[in-house]
Simulated assay, not measured.
Amino acid sequence: MRREDAMTDGDISASGAGVRAGKRLLLVHAHPDDETITTGGTIARYLAEGAEVTVVTCTLGEQGEVIGDEWAQLVAEAADQLGGYRIMELSAALAALGGPGHRFLGGAGRWRDSGMAGTPAADHPRAFVRGDGAEATEQLAAVVAGLRPHVVITYGPDGGYGHPDHIRAHTVTMAAVERARARWDTPKVYWTVAEDEAIAAGLADLGPVPGAWAIPDAGELPAVPASTVTAEVDISAHLDAKRAALAAHATQVRVAEGGRAYALSNGIAQPVVAREFFVLARGGAGPTVPGGRETDLLAGVRAE
C-alpha cells in the first residue's frame, strides 16, 4: 500500500489540498438539504483535500414543509413551486461546501418528492417511490459507470429515519452499484448514519437556542448504536462550511446563534457535531484506529 493510501488524519491536515487527486466520491441523497445535514462536512473536507466529489439528488423536495411565512405559498398544497426554489437553495449550499459536482437523478424534475408514508403525495405519477425502480436504477448506474467513484455514500436500509424516498434512494443506489459492475466495480460503499453517543453529547452542549425550539431527549432523535458504526470522519475544520450550507436551505433549516444547533420545520433542536458517521456496506475497510473504526473513507483505494 502506498503512503497516500494509508494517510492518517494528521498526515492530511499537514499536507493540505491536493493529496486526494484522482480519487472520487459519489453521494446519493433523496432531497435538497439531505446532503448537508448528513454529509456536509464530509463533502467539504474531501473537496478541500483535492478529491473529486459529486452529489446526486433524487428529487426536488417538493413536499417539504416551509419555515416561516415569506415562502409559505410555494408549498405543494398552494403554488407548488417549492421544488424550483429549492434548486436555488441547493446550489447555494453546495457552493458553501466547496462546489462539488451535482446532478439530479434523471434530470431535474424527473422524480418527485414522495412525501411521508401514507400521504397523498406518494400517489403522484412522478413520485420517487411510485416510479419505475428499474429506470431509476439504470439512470444511477450510468452515473456510476461514467464517474467511476472509489466511494459511494447513501443511506442504510431504513433510510436513516424511515422516509420513503430515503429508503428508495438506498435501494436504487445499492442496485445501481451492482448494475454498473461490468463497467465500474465501485471499491467501497458506505451508509451515512447518526451515532447515538455523538447525538447525546451534542444535545448536552447545544448552546443557546430559540425559546420556541423543543429540546429532545437523546433517544428521541434517529440514531444507531455506537457499536454499529464502522467509520467516522472528523469535520471539525469544516464546521463553518457546513453551517453556511445548512443556513442556505432556509426554507427547511434554521441554525441557532452560535452554530451548535439547528432545527427543521418541526422546531426540534438537533446538534451540529464535529464528526460524521458511516457504516461500511461494501468493500474492504482501510486502516482503523483503536476501537476498529476507519477515519478516512478513501483509505485503501488507489487513484488511477
Rank of each mutant, 00 (worst) to 15 (best):
R130I: 02
G156H: 01
L82K: 11
E197G: 09
S114L: 03
L298P: 00
L105V: 06
F128N: 02
A93G: 10
P271M: 03
G258L: 07
A237M: 09
A92D: 08
V301K: 09
T192W: 09
Y85A: 10
I235Q: 00
A169W: 03
T173S: 08
A145G: 11
H163M: 08
R293C: 08
M1S: 10
A244L: 04
A72Y: 11
D196G: 10
A21T: 14
A241N: 09
P187T: 13
R275W: 09
H29C: 05
S15D: 06
E294H: 06
A261M: 04
I167S: 03
V19L: 12
R168A: 13
A48R: 12
T251M: 04
P125N: 04
G118A: 05
A121E: 10
A281S: 13
E52N: 06
A285S: 09
R112W: 03
T137M: 09
T295M: 12
Q139Y: 13
T228S: 14
W111Q: 00
D9M: 14
V53Y: 00
A245R: 01
E294V: 12
R130T: 07
A223R: 01
S265A: 15
D196F: 10
D205W: 13
R20M: 14
A263V: 03
E52M: 07
E197W: 12
G162T: 02
A176L: 07
T171Q: 11
T192A: 13
T288K: 04
